[in-house]
């Protein structure tokens, strides 16, 4: 479970610009929420705080009861490694690894190898419809196929939290719809908590709840 309590973040010191102020959010396991907002409102900042890539100035950020804000950088990195998965707008697959090895990367990072790990990879690739392309390299795939691999990678190690940042930004509408469907299905199947950051209303509509981030704060839209 992700529990964000009154977090604030400014840049540029005490007299600097306040980007987030008093943000609170709770996402339970199996829940899939969207965060929408205008450009520059602080969505990336919020995402970085949730991912443990930055620490809030005030407030608490609890993942499975552990306050990430209190951990040092190394500890936060290890939390990301074991409990979080990411889907990026630009896919960011490693170009010189096969898609199977790309999907297996989080397992390798968590020192999980062997038949169980291989089965997990196969199952995920099958779930996203790419088991027959397991040994292909990313450059041999289309944009939609690469994003499916990215989704599979994000879930390989059964994370507690999946963060997807504009996952359909580089895709055409048909591919976008397919990816969103796959993403939702996998999050639900693994009972992970999922957060989708997007500009697209259509994408937001695939989630359970939609929050809007404005300069005033984070409000539930629907």
């Amino acid at each position: 479970m992700l529990d964000i309590r009154q977090i604030s973040k400014s840049y540029g010191g005490p007299a600097g610009r306040k980007v987030l102020d008093g943000i609170s959010l709770t996402v339970m396991p199996g829940e899939y929420v969207a965060i929408v907002g205008e450009s520059g409102v602080g969505k990336s900042t919020l995402l970085n705080l949730i991912a443990g890539l930055d620490v809030p100035d005030h407030g608490e950020l609890l993942l499975e009861g552990r306050d990430l804000a209190r951990l040092d950088e190394n500890a936060r990195t290890l939390v990301r490694r074991t409990r979080m998965g990411f889907v990026f707008q630009a896919f960011h697959l490693l170009p010189h690894l096969s898609i199977a090895r790309n999907v297996a990367l989080p397992l390798a990072l968590n020192a999980q190898a062997g038949p169980a790990a291989e089965q997990r990879v196969f199952d995920l690739l099958e779930a996203v419809g790419l088991a027959h392309r397991a040994q292909s390299l990313p450059r041999e795939l289309s944009g939609g196929e690469m994003q499916r691999v990215a989704v599979a990678r994000a879930l390989a190690h059964r994370p507690a939290l999946v963060l997807a940042d504009e996952p359909t930004g580089n895709l055409d509408p048909d591919n976008a719809a397919a990816i969103l469907e796959v993403l939702r299905a996998q999050i639900k199947r693994d009972n992970a908590a999922g957060i989708l950051v997007t500009h697209s209303a259509a994408a937001a509509a695939t989630t359970d709840r939609v929050y809007e981030l404005t300069r005033a704060g984070l409000t539930l839209r629907s």
Partner: peptide, 12 residues
Amino acid sequence: GEFGMLRHLGVT
């Protein structure tokens, strides 16, 4: 981009 992704994935 690749290094950013790895940092997100938990590579120290």
